[in-house]
């Protein structure tokens, strides 16, 4: 079990997990988004290779309407 902070809220994820698996868990497959892990952007090419650990803090952002 991993305890993560995602977009400022605690979230438990079962078992071991990399960023790519997290994206799938969050139902973001196929969407346009960007992820920061502990303040550093994780490029798409590194999602699968980036393992998450207990206490990691993530920001997941998308484009929304704005001026």
């Amino acid at each position: 079990m991993l305890l993560l902070q995602i977009n400022g809220k605690p979230r438990e994820i079962a078992g071991e997990c990399n960023v790519e698996q997290l994206v799938s868990t969050l139902q973001l497959d196929g969407k346009r988004f960007a992820i920061e892990l502990n303040g550093e952007i994780v490029p798409k090419s590194r999602h699968a290779a980036t393992c998450l650990k207990n206490g990691d803090s993530l920001e997941v952002v998308i484009a929304v309407g704005g001026g």
Binding site: A34, V60, G66
Partner: peptide, 17 residues
Amino acid sequence: VAIRRVNIGQHAGEPSL
């Protein structure tokens, strides 16, 4: 467009901007 936190789990199947 603006950049904002995604609402995790909400509107998962709906189109995005």
